[in-house]
Every structure is written in structure tokens, then in C-alpha cells.
Simulated scan of single mutants.
Amino acid sequence: MSKHGFFQITQKLFLRNGDQMLVLRDRKSGHGDLPGGRMNEDEFFSDWSESIFREVTEELGEQIKIDVNPEPIFIHKHMVNEGNIPCIIVAYTAKLLNGKIQLSDEHDFMDWVDIKTFDPSKLFSEYMLEAVQLYLTKYA
């Protein structure tokens, strides 16, 4: 008999400024990433948007102001690079309102890419690549 799985939840934002989308690169793995991250245990029974805003503040700085659509656009599987832990991506769309991004130590690269011409395979890999391709197919 197979046993139930335990999976972490990561919330990721497709952060847009018009036709531009923010992409990041994870410093440790060298793989492409999106703003957001894993939910802490104590955040599970709270409003999940609190977890999103905590992650965005940690990764992009205090100055950035965004508008997140609270309705997820899709769910996707993922493996967290650190420890190869199976994870569920809950993906959201968000708009940049204003503010200057200050990258944290988690990421060593960022770029605003044109959603109509961006090739995610140069930066992203595996399940995250599939998630970005899914987004671009639906929303570019």
C-alpha cells in the first residue's frame, strides 16, 4: 500500500510591469527563479497572502509595492533545489506599482524580460521551466 506524500508549498509570482516580467536567478543553484518562496509552518492556517508578501519583501526589498491577484492562476509540481524536496508551486499574477528592487543574497541576477520574445529555456530548468512556459503560453 502506498503512503500519503508530504509536500512543501511554494508561492511564486509572475510579476509584471506592462509586457515586462521579472525573472531572477538563484545564487546557490544557478537556475532561474521567480519572486516568492516556501510557506512556513505557522503561515499555513493564516491568510496565504501574508506568506507571499513576506517572501517578496525578503527577496525584493522593503521599497517595492506590488498588487497581487489573490486567485492562483495554476498549480504545478516542483523540486526545491535545496534538499531535492517535492514541492507544489501555487502561481499568481502580480503587477509592479512602484518602488526600486533591492535583490537579497538569495539571487545574483534579475532582469525584466519581454513576455512576447523571452526564451525561458536559457535561464530556467526542469519543473520551473515548465511553469514559466505554461504561463507564457497562456498570458504572453
Results as ranks from 00 to 15, higher is better:
residue 74 F to Q: 08
residue 109 F to V: 06
residue 29 S to T: 09
residue 44 F to R: 14
residue 28 K to G: 14
residue 53 F to T: 06
residue 28 K to S: 15
residue 18 G to A: 07
residue 132 V to Q: 01
residue 136 L to Q: 01
residue 133 Q to I: 10
residue 48 W to S: 03
residue 78 H to I: 07
residue 50 E to W: 11
residue 12 K to C: 03
residue 47 D to W: 08
residue 86 P to G: 13
residue 133 Q to T: 05
residue 74 F to H: 10
residue 135 Y to R: 01
residue 43 E to N: 10
residue 97 L to R: 08
residue 131 A to C: 04
residue 88 I to F: 11
residue 72 P to Q: 09
residue 87 C to P: 06
residue 58 E to K: 11
residue 127 Y to L: 13
residue 16 R to E: 10
residue 139 Y to D: 04
residue 27 R to K: 15
residue 11 Q to P: 02
residue 64 I to H: 01
residue 136 L to H: 01
residue 26 D to P: 05
residue 85 I to D: 11
residue 82 E to I: 14
residue 49 S to W: 04
residue 4 H to Y: 13
residue 133 Q to F: 09
residue 57 T to D: 14
residue 72 P to E: 07
residue 103 L to N: 00
residue 97 L to M: 12
residue 78 H to W: 13
residue 40 N to H: 15
residue 101 I to P: 01
residue 81 N to G: 13
residue 74 F to I: 07
residue 50 E to R: 14
residue 5 G to E: 08
residue 106 E to L: 08
residue 84 N to H: 15
residue 82 E to A: 15
residue 132 V to W: 00
residue 56 V to D: 02
residue 42 D to N: 13
residue 18 G to Q: 04
residue 65 K to S: 03
residue 83 G to Q: 07
residue 68 V to L: 04
residue 44 F to I: 14
residue 101 I to W: 01
residue 7 F to I: 09
residue 10 T to V: 05
residue 50 E to S: 11
residue 31 H to V: 04
residue 97 L to I: 10
residue 99 G to I: 06
residue 7 F to E: 05
residue 88 I to H: 07
residue 76 H to G: 15
residue 99 G to V: 05
residue 32 G to H: 00
residue 63 Q to V: 10
residue 31 H to R: 08
residue 19 D to F: 11
residue 13 L to K: 00
residue 96 L to F: 04
residue 132 V to C: 03
residue 50 E to C: 11
residue 12 K to Y: 03
residue 104 S to M: 06
residue 48 W to K: 04
residue 127 Y to R: 09
residue 90 V to R: 05
residue 13 L to N: 00
residue 118 F to C: 07
residue 140 A to W: 05
residue 96 L to V: 11
residue 110 M to D: 05
residue 116 K to R: 15
residue 10 T to A: 07
residue 72 P to L: 07
residue 115 I to W: 06
residue 58 E to H: 11
